[in-house]
């Protein structure tokens, strides 16, 4: 909500099912968003560059190029929030999608309100930080949404930035996965820990020197995660 927008937010709907795509457009337009539809995996990048969406709604089963590959392609050039649409709630697919770079996922069938809530949660920039935060050799700047470590800029997605900001914001607290889901993803979905686990792995691979022996965020077994207070 701290993010000020001058125009309507744009959602790129990537789905091969014409009816569903049209229905999604109707619902999103009804919510005051601008939507564009792309029906094939191999045309996503063209549509993406042209449309410049603020959020991508991506079906995992696509003709041309599958959802995972599309996800990776987008991530290679952009940190735009990606929400997967999946018919399979089975873990392997979801985890694979999250590992490919998706921020969140929603399982078909879903309620309109739920869909809109997820999209709005991704559009809304979190207000975890008001001031720039220095934490050991890491510097977070909430104004520019930039992170540097030892002066080197780190390429974090907005979600990863929020996750890091949330943890570093209060190093005294151990954050449970439930709390992180609520604070960073913006909704309560009991037990959906894989969302947190996968993103924590991605975040660590970007900020830690050795993801196996983390120096910035530690795992508190059976509880959650906590920032490691740097030794001055």
């Amino acid at each position: 909500m701290s993010y000020r927008r001058t125009k309507r937010d744009r959602v790129l709907v990537v789905d091969d099912d014409a009816s569903l795509a049209e229905m999604l457009t109707i619902v999103l337009e009804g919510e005051g968003l601008t939507a564009a539809v792309c029906r094939s995996g191999d045309r996503v990048m063209a549509a993406f560059t042209q449309f410049k969406p603020d959020v991508v709604l991506l079906d995992l089963m696509l003709p041309g190029l599958d959802g995972m590959s599309v996800c990776r392609q987008i991530r290679a050039t952009s940190a735009v929030p990606i929400i997967m649409l999946t018919a399979k709630s089975d873990t392997p697919d979801v985890v694979a999608g999250l590992e490919a770079g998706a921020d969140d996922y929603i399982t078909k069938p879903f309620k309109n309100t739920e869909l809109v809530a997820r999209i709005r949660a991704r559009l809304r920039r979190s207000d975890q930080l008001a001031e720039p935060l220095e934490f050991g050799d890491i510097v977070l700047d909430p104004a520019g949404h930039t992170v540097t470590r030892k002066g080197e800029p780190l390429e974090l997605t907005p979600l990863e930035f929020d996750l890091l900001a949330c943890l570093l914001g209060d190093p005294s607290q151990v954050f449970t996965r439930e709390t992180l889901l609520q604070k960073v993803w913006g909704y309560h979905h009991p037990g959906d820990t894989k969302l947190v686990n996968v993103h924590m792995t991605r975040l660590r691979s970007k900020i830690e020197d050795d993801a196996e022996n983390p120096e910035i965020i530690r795992t508190v077994r059976g509880v959650g995660y906590q920032a490691i207070t740097p030794v001055p």
């Binding site: 229905m23 399979k88 078909k108 069938p109 879903f110 309109n112």
Partner: peptide, 21 residues
């Protein structure tokens, strides 16, 4: 099961969204 799941869920999603509208 997986195919039925996918094939049924997509139209059901559309119908449900429409019904909610």
């Amino acid at each position: 099961v997986s195919d039925v799941s996918h094939e049924l869920r997509t139209p059901l999603t559309t119908v449900q969204m429409a019904s909610e509208v």
